[in-house]
């Protein structure tokens, strides 16, 4: 009666021989074609036949499928979550690719050719020979205004984005400022309203005119989009309320950085806290440079 699919014997054989980067070639071709169309229509969400991945939906399956379709044996891969290389999900995704591709992995932004990220853009500026892949939970910037895909699709078709401006302006009326601090909407190449994924708005300016190719994958929602290199990415704002990023009164407690995104860490149960770089590589690089100069001084 069990003749429709492979028997467990075949399964054992198959499990030892997944394709390079897990996805089959047919799926990669479909995703690759979608990626190319995404680049030619910056900020537009291309529907794609997203596959079930061996990792859970909402845990980076879109980013993983994009990375799997782009990655080659020569790539050096970096995976971060919340800016850090050692958060559990980043570790899990990095080991998935190490296992299925055998590529070299790194924690150094400068060394990577391919970076998969969740919720941050590295502090170290990206270059032309790098590709960054964002994991996207909800790709549709208009979703909280209009839950229906059929409607939001029309709104994008007509570039009808007035509702989003109204929503942001309601914040200003109520709070005196725009109360969106992450996943802050942007206009790409002067045309498409786009969700930058839940990066803090601190990172939005990094997307603008970036020399690297930026790719976005939403697995559960089955959408791919892109920002080509050297492309305008403008955070929505108003003339009397220009876009601003977060700043901190403190410096990083580890490396002393004054210009990176800081995480707040609770140090005791009496309200004690400290601020440290969310980008662990950036922080580590600064410390290493600092140590090296200390050593030079001692040696002299």
């Amino acid at each position: 009666m069990d003749t429709i699919s492979q028997s467990p014997d075949n399964f054992h054989a198959a499990s030892g021989s997944y394709n390079f980067a897990y996805l089959d070639e047919q799926t990669k071709r479909m995703i690759r074609r979608a990626l190319l169309k995404a680049i030619t229509i910056p900020g537009y969400q291309v529907p794609f036949g997203g596959r079930e991945m061996p990792l859970s939906y909402g845990w980076g399956t879109g980013g993983i499928q994009v990375t799997a379709s782009v990655i080659g044996p020569e790539d050096i891969l970096k995976v971060i979550d919340q800016g850090a290389d050692d958060t559990t999900n980043a570790v899990s995704i990095r080991s998935f690719f190490a296992k299925t591709t055998g590529v070299e992995t790194t924690t150094e932004t400068a060394e990577a050719t391919l970076i998969q990220t969740r919720h941050r853009i590295p502090e170290t500026p990206l270059r032309e020979d790098q590709v960054i892949v964002y994991q996207v939970p909800i790709p549709e910037p208009l979703r909280w205004l209009e839950p229906r895909e059929t409607e939001t699709r029309k709104m994008h078709g007509l570039a009808e984005y007035g509702g989003m401006h109204v929503r942001l302006y309601e914040d200003i009326t109520r709070y005196g400022k725009i109360a969106t601090s992450y996943d802050y909407p942007v206009i790409v190449n002067g045309r498409y309203l786009m969700r930058p994924s839940p990066i803090p708005k601190f990172d939005n300016p990094k997307m603008d005119q970036n020399p690297a190719l930026q790719l976005f994958g939403a697995g559960r929602e089955k959408r791919i989009y892109a920002v080509p290199p050297y492309t305008s990415v403008k955070s929505l704002d108003f003339e009397d309320h220009p876009f601003e990023i977060q700043t901190w009164d403190q410096d990083c407690a580890i490396c002393g950085s004054t210009d990176s995104f800081l995480d707040e860490v609770i140090t005791d149960d009496a309200g004690g806290r400290m601020f440290v770089c969310s980008d662990t590589d950036y922080c580590g690089q600064r410390m290493a440079a600092h140590d090296a100069s200390d050593e030079t001084e001692t040696n002299q």
């Binding site: 909402g58 919340q82 999900n89 919720h119 995480d263």
Partner: peptide
């Protein structure tokens, strides 16, 4: 279940 993943960057912003 993805809400179990760290969101401390977003939370910090909020």
């Amino acid at each position: 279940q993805h809400l179990k993943l760290p969101h401390y960057v977003d939370f910090q912003s909020e």
